[in-house]
């Protein structure tokens, strides 16, 4: 399916310069000589390692969403919230736009991304393309920057500091789960998913 000649070339997305592809060794990053954008980096994670990361992220994600994030205390009264508690409250407070934004960027998109990745990687372990491979890969690309869990973690930190002036603040397990999720996202940030196009072949489907 791939013509060998096309695989040997590489085009810089940021300035359209054409390069001959070179095998990179561990730690190497290929940069464009014209615009200095990153062309490719050595992918040190195997498919199995990526799958393990995604599965871990799924478990942490479930915890981050189930458990309360922070508890506030004021004169013996307590108030806690989960992510969905926050989304629902915003809807009820006439900020439906914010509610929908949060629901998608913090819940639906991250969840979709993990499920799709898990599905694709599960098949990629044997070098196969999962059913729906092409469409899912295109979908993943378009999901792009619309997952914002790491921004939310920083936001929670700011909210805690702000609330700390007026309330007793207790960090709940949810915030730790979110912190762990951020670490996983950061590890995954260097992964170029486009390698799956090359690593897998049309076995069936």
């Amino acid at each position: 399916m791939d013509t060998g000649a096309a695989d040997a070339l590489l085009i810089c997305e940021h300035c359209d310069t054409v390069y001959r592809r070179r095998i990179l060794v561990r730690g190497e990053v290929a940069r464009c000589a014209r615009c200095a954008a990153e062309l490719e980096r050595h992918q040190s994670l195997s498919v199995n390692a990526m799958l393990a990361l995604v599965l871990t992220a799924m478990i942490v994600f479930v915890q981050a969403n189930m458990w309360p994030i922070v508890t506030l205390g004021l004169n013996g009264q307590f108030s806690a919230t989960t992510l969905w508690g926050m989304i629902i409250t915003m809807w009820q407070q006439q900020a439906q736009v914010v509610s929908v934004l949060a629901a998608f960027t913090l819940f639906f998109f991250p969840m979709t991304k993990m499920l799709v990745l898990g599905w694709l990687l599960w098949f990629a372990r044997r070098g196969r393309r999962a059913p729906g491979f092409v469409r899912l890969m295109v979908g993943l690309h378009h999901l792009g920057p619309w997952t914002m869990s790491e921004v939310f973690v920083l936001g929670a930190l700011v909210a805690i500091v702000k609330a700390h002036n007026y309330f007793d603040v207790v960090a709940d397990p949810g915030i730790y789960a979110y912190a762990a999720l951020t670490v996983l996202i950061t590890i995954f940030a260097g992964v170029d998913l486009r390698q799956l196009w090359v690593l897998t072949r049309d076995g069936q489907a």
């Binding site: 994030i69 506030l72 806690a80 407070q93 914002m148 909210a159």
Partner: peptide, 13 residues
């Protein structure tokens, strides 16, 4: 988007 999430979280809390 940081500030948006801060407001949302404080509202819920």
């Amino acid at each position: 988007m940081l500030d948006v999430f801060v407001v949302a979280l404080l509202t819920a809390l």
